[in-house]
Design a protein around this nucleic acid. Structure first.
Length: 452
RNA sequence: CGGGGUAUAGCGCAGCCUGGUAGCGCGGAAGUUUUGGGUACUUCAGGUCGCAGGUUCGAAUCCUGCUGCCCCGACCA
């Protein structure tokens, strides 16, 4: 083939004929919620047990893109990535007092030596253990350590596909500070990082006042995206949807208070903490939004809840040892994939934002085997690949209708449709999935549109 | 964990009431045809009917137990 002779032979696995994309034409009956149906139909996931999924290639690509955005923004905010194990020793949880407190949601396991283990539902205890082993002085603070790891919570009733699975991928970060002022700054850094994370995925995530637990205070927010199929009712001021997102070069060492203030002074709450009187007092009638939302992240300050029982202490400037003050910050990475679909779809299927799309562009060769169509498709494919763009080339010997339906279903942001009809005029069709707009343009223009 | 369903081919389903050689559509393979929004036709492959007992000459079908999965509720990222 012409392509194989070039300097940039197409990666064989990006050609649909050699890819693994098990599309379902009919909707599996077990799937109720839309994102779950679409993920199954688009061949993104396969259920292996209740609330446990295998991520098939297409789904895995999205999961990785989401993961990478989370990672980049965490790093930008000064957090440091590590990786803790999925299995934890029960003794660690006995030390923090959580082993008996956690209940049947925690999956408990015994190893061959009859030692009690558990599949971690979260990692506060372990990170505290790690931290206390090495850090003794206030000079090493503040620190923020995070990892992106699979968790397990043995939900009584898993549902909604990856939106509420038992096994799920989560980013959890943990901050360590000497005093409350520092802890607040750590909290604010994460708050800002979260604004950027969700915005980069094309989502409008609203930080909402959340239950703070036994510690109290105002340092707890859930980040909620609005979707008709959301699990909880939310109330907020419409203006919050138009607030500016901090830029990429935001200075995380500067005072972030003004940003936090802008985002938290407008009313926003989930129904479990909603105060109708206050809502009406603080929000003009035409600004009152009552919607449904999906929680995709939470930031939480918990003070010395773990450091005190686990003796995670550092010496301050005065030489006195004191428990560090901590916070934890979670993002439901696998859940986000479902949430993104809830927020972006139409009758034909998924509509991915460019930043997380499994491929940016799908090329549909409508007449595989026709020399002109093949050559034109490969020319575009090679040019885009060479520019570093993720492209899926549909080189299957299938009818055009099937190809269109499949590309619409899997939701790639752009489709380049190549066939004899257009090529007769030297043109191909570029379709934008979100708007449905189609432009008949020349090959070179099509390439130029994506290659800077 | 309470309540309700359901389990038959990869997916969606019929058959069960009234026991007697396991079917349909989609998908898959081969072919003819077709070719710009899921083309039509022909042929083929594919199931120890969730598992274990029981009743019966004979069980997908009737009975008992178990398990998986789904939905509603409570719970939750």
């Amino acid at each position: 083939m012409a392509a194989a002779a070039g300097s940039f032979p197409p990666s064989p696995f990006m050609r649909l004929s050699r890819y693994f994309l098990p599309i379902l034409r009919e909707t599996p009956k077990e799937a109720e919620i839309l994102s779950h149906r679409l993920m199954l139909r688009a061949g993104m996931i396969r259920q292996e047990a209740a609330g446990i999924y295998a991520w098939l290639p297409l789904g895995f690509r999205v999961l990785q893109k989401v993961t990478q955005i989370v990672r980049e923004e965490m790093d930008r905010a000064g957090a440091i990535e590590l990786l803790m194990p999925t299995l934890q020793l029960a003794d660690l949880w006995r030390e923090s007092g959580r082993y008996d407190a956690y209940g049947p949601e925690m999956l408990r396991i015994k190893d061959r030596h009859e030692r009690d283990l558990l599949y971690g539902p979260t990692n506060e205890d372990m990170i505290t253990e790690i931290f206390r082993a090495y850090v003794r002085s206030y000079k090493e603070l503040p620190k923020n350590l995070y990892h992106i790891q699979w968790k397990f919570r043995d939900e009584q009733r898993p549902r909604f596909g990856v939106m509420r699975g038992r096994e799920f991928l989560m980013k959890d970060a943990y901050s360590f500070d000497l005093d409350e002022a520092g802890a607040r700054r750590s909290y604010q850094r994460m708050f800002v990082a979260y604004l950027r994370i969700f915005a980069r995925m094309g989502l409008k995530a609203i930080p909402m006042r959340a239950e703070t637990g036994p510690i109290g205070g105002e340092l707890s927010h859930e980040f909620i995206i609005l979707a008709e199929t959301g699990e909880s009712g939310v109330y907020c001021n419409a203006d919050i949807l138009d607030l500016p997102i901090p830029a990429e070069d935001v200075d995380y060492d500067a005072d972030l208070e003004p940003v936090i203030k802008a985002w938290t002074s407008l009313y926003a709450a989930t129904d479990d903490v909603h105060d109708q009187a206050r809502f009406e007092r603080e929000t003009a009638p035409e600004k009152r939004l009552r919607k449904r939302g999906i929680e995709v992240g939470q930031v939480f300050y918990f003070g010395d809840k773990y450091s005190r029982p686990m003796h995670a202490v550092v010496a301050g400037p005065d030489g006195v040892e004191r428990p560090i003050l901590g916070g934890s910050y979670g993002v439901g990475v696998s859940r986000l994939v479902g949430a993104l679909i809830e927020a972006g779809h139409d009758e034909a299927g998924i509509i991915w934002p460019e930043s997380v799309a499994p491929f940016l562009i799908g090329i549909a060769n409508l007449k595989v085997g026709d020399p002109e169509s093949d050559a034109a498709s490969l020319k575009i494919y090679d040019a885009l690949k060479k520019a570093g763009i993720d492209v899926l080339y549909d080189d299957t010997d299938e009818r055009p209708g099937g190809k269109f339906a499949r590309l619409d279903l899997i939701g790639l942001p752009y489709q380049i449709i190549v066939g004899p009809k257009g090529l007769a005029e030297g043109k191909v069709e570029v379709k934008t999935r979100a708007s449905g707009a189609r432009d008949l343009i020349t090959l070179d223009d099509a390439i130029a549109r994506f290659v800077a």
